[in-house]
């Protein structure tokens, strides 16, 4: 792409951000804020209840001594627990991100046909392929980046809150924080985004296709079509013709097509059988060396190719759908 094309793409994505500021920006921020608030409330409740019952956890410096007595293995477990605390913030954000991306894709090529503003966008010298591409980029790159960075900030704040709480109980804050691996957590989260893009392609493609094609109710079409097909397949036992169990269809077509926009589903559903987790147990399965084993799975690549095909369909419908 030349500079003009890059510039156009930048502004197209910016346009998406303007329109969907609520989903892309405020949803993760508010989720993160609520997550922290709940944690703080939980801690305060625990402190109040503890104080009422005369328990002051670690007041005599006992907790500090416990840590001092820990060997390397125990310390790594503390580090693991802190990493979990950091990832846990991300967990909630990921669910929110999944919903945001799902509904964003369903509306992306439909809403402007419904309110006829497509006639304004189409009066500008922008190709339909660029328009669709900008929606894909917004869904699979922009939205996850915002979510991950929010997750990282929330995770750090979460660590800080834990550390400050513990410091009231005589535990040295900074010593403890050194046991966590915030940079590794960040690296793993940011590094997961390209994998998410590849894995989410068939879902994004399907949802955008429905969005560009449906004359009304794209949600119903996007969900009802695969589910109805699945029911027919189950009813008539069609998968038997291919020597495959019926569940194969549900798992590889319905679930894969609809829910791959939820981050992490690739790591959960993407593998045929077990995959080897290297490193010590704990949160190491989030290490990129482990998550990227998905690249060896044909499921990922077949899905990505099908996703590109669906996107080509979405571009075609965007070009020729004539109903506004």
């Amino acid at each position: 792409m030349n500079t003009t094309a890059w510039k156009t793409m930048y502004w197209l994505v910016k346009r998406e951000f303007w329109e969907h500021r609520g989903g892309f920006f405020w949803a993760p921020i508010v989720t993160g804020g609520v997550f922290l608030l709940l944690n703080i409330m939980g801690i305060i409740t625990a402190e109040v209840v503890g104080a009422r019952h005369g328990i002051n956890f670690g007041a005599s410096g006992g907790l500090q001594r416990v840590i001092a007595d820990m060997d390397a293995g125990d310390l790594s477990k503390v580090g693991f627990a802190l990493d979990v605390a950091m990832y846990s913030a991300m967990g909630l954000l990921i669910v929110v991100l999944g919903f945001v991306v799902f509904f964003y894709c369903l509306g992306a090529l439909y809403d402007d046909r419904r309110d006829r503003s497509i006639l304004f966008w189409k009066s500008l010298p922008i190709s339909d392929a660029s328009t669709v591409l900008s929606k894909v980029v917004s869904a699979t790159v922009l939205a996850p980046i915002v979510a991950v960075f929010t997750g990282i900030v929330v995770g750090m704040l979460q660590l800080l809150i834990l550390a400050v709480t513990l410091s009231f109980h005589g535990v040295n804050v900074w010593q403890l924080l050194l046991l966590a691996h915030p940079f590794r957590v960040m690296f793993n989260l940011v590094g997961y985004i390209p994998l998410y893009l590849l894995w989410a392609l068939p879902s994004v493609g399907w949802l955008l296709l429905c969005s560009a094609w449906a004359r009304n109710k794209p949600f119903l079409w996007a969900v009802a079509l695969p589910v109805a097909t699945g029911l027919l397949v189950s009813w008539f036992g069609i998968m038997g013709l291919f020597d495959l169990p019926t569940i194969w269809f549900w798992k590889n077509i319905v679930q894969r097509g609809l829910f791959s926009v939820f981050p992490g589903t690739g790591s959960v559903f993407g593998h045929q059988g077990d995959f080897a987790v290297s490193g010590t147990p704990g949160m190491d399965f989030m290490d990129l060396g482990n998550t990227y084993q998905l690249l060896a799975s044909p499921n990922l690549w077949i899905g990505a190719v099908i996703g590109l095909g669906l996107l080509a369909g979405a571009v075609w419908f965007r070009r020729w759908r004539d109903d506004s």
Binding site: W18, E19, D112, D115, R116, S117, I118, L119, F120, W121, K122, S123, L124, P125, I126, S127
Partner: peptide
Amino acid sequence: DKLMGEVCFIADVAVLPRWI
């Protein structure tokens, strides 16, 4: 795509996106 570089159109009053 090339054509739209040299053509403008106003469809009718209500086509500017409402959020912009």
